[in-house]
Design a protein around this nucleic acid. Structure first.
Lengths: 196, 196
DNA sequence: TTTTCTTGCTAACGAACGTTAGCAATGGTA
DNA sequence: TACCATTGCTAACGTTCGTTAGCAAGAAAA
């Protein structure tokens, strides 16, 4: 097979991602997935070992992308912290919007991973969140960010970002870069009218 | 039966809420639910008509609570808009934290409602979000809130709030009122250091 | 006392589930 | 040409699913 841009395995991952997002992992049957691919249920197992393996790949691939983006965004530590934070926010939004379906699965379906994958996944997520938290802590300590409770603030910050896959649709009015910019502004400046 | 504080039906709803939150609606079996209640699977059907009926009650009960809270918070239209918004935020957080499990189900499991309930639910949610959006629009028009794109801002605002059930645990360091206050501050003032 | 409501049981139904075994066609590679 | 990886099929497996029928015990209501 030369014509296909994606290997059959990648097609399976992609189609499964869309279905997992729309119906949830548990409510998506292998027969539904097969139908969406235009083949029979048993045929899928020529390419994968189990249903959960698909979920595993989706979740950990996204985790890799979030980490790589964050590293890239924050590696220049001569930048003001607010700028690093802005870059990290933009990177997060970029990963989210590059594959909304996969992001939604990453955010909501990881609980259906069985051990030990589930624990590994949660450790990665915690590590990633710690990166944001540390940015806010550094900013608060050096007086460049206003964050009386950096741990709390980082939760709220990631919350605003992670809700994005529930409403973002590619090709909409706002491009991903616009969204990232507005989100960063709103989170940094707030809704209150500025006096100065 | 006189001794029970909750009717058996309410016990079923409550136990199901916890399980639906932890495992998801589709991945929770009636036999699991029965075991958690200390009875047999078939016995549940002396009290309910179907599994989905439980989900339906949970989702629409929460919707009622969100609406009631919002009405109460915003009925006084002599208040400055920022104050109304703050009160609406506090109400939302109060409903979320009063029953975290039910809130998580409300936020994530409604997709497993079948038609027409699913459409009805989404209409209610949209109506509720429109309430917040209108507050921001009014605030922006009267110059009391800084929101260049009120629709976008209201999405971000609700995002920050709705992520709460993923990490909030009753009895933690922060009381619900504290959380509401901090959230409102962070959303209104932002993370940037204020010059004035 | 008779009736009715609540609560629960056992046993089973048909359907759907994830997965496997065994076989076959195709097309690139040696 | 011979080989082999890819891809797919049919048929079936054992399990679990939501749900129902029929029956029964106890408490409350008439």
């Amino acid at each position: 097979m030369e014509t296909a841009l994606l290997s059959r395995k990648d097609q399976i991952d992609h189609t499964a991602t869309v279905l997992f997002r729309a119906r949830g992992f548990a409510a998506t049957s292998m027969r539904e997935l097969a139908t969406a691919l235009g083949i029979e249920a048993g045929s899928i197992y020529s390419h994968i070992r189990s249903k959960e393996e698909i979920l595993h790949r989706i979740c950990f691939r996204l985790a890799d992308q979030f980490f790589a983006g964050f590293e890239d965004a924050t590696q220049n530590n001569t930048l003001p912290i607010a700028d690093s934070l802005r870059r990290a926010i933009e990177s997060h939004v970029q990963v989210l919007t590059a594959d909304v379906a996969a992001s939604a699965v990453f955010l909501h379906e990881w609980r259906h991973l069985s051990e030990p994958a589930r624990t590994e996944f949660l450790a990665l997520r915690e590590q990633y969140e710690a990166g944001f938290r540390q940015l806010l802590i550094n900013g608060a300590e050096t007086g460049t960010l206003y964050a009386p409770d950096p741990a709390f603030a980082s939760l709220t910050l990631l919350a605003s970002l992670n809700w994005l896959p529930t409403w973002y649709a590619p090709g909409g009015k706002l491009a991903p870069a616009d969204i990232a910019h507005r989100l960063a502004n709103q989170l940094l400046f707030g809704l209150e009218v500025r006096e100065n």
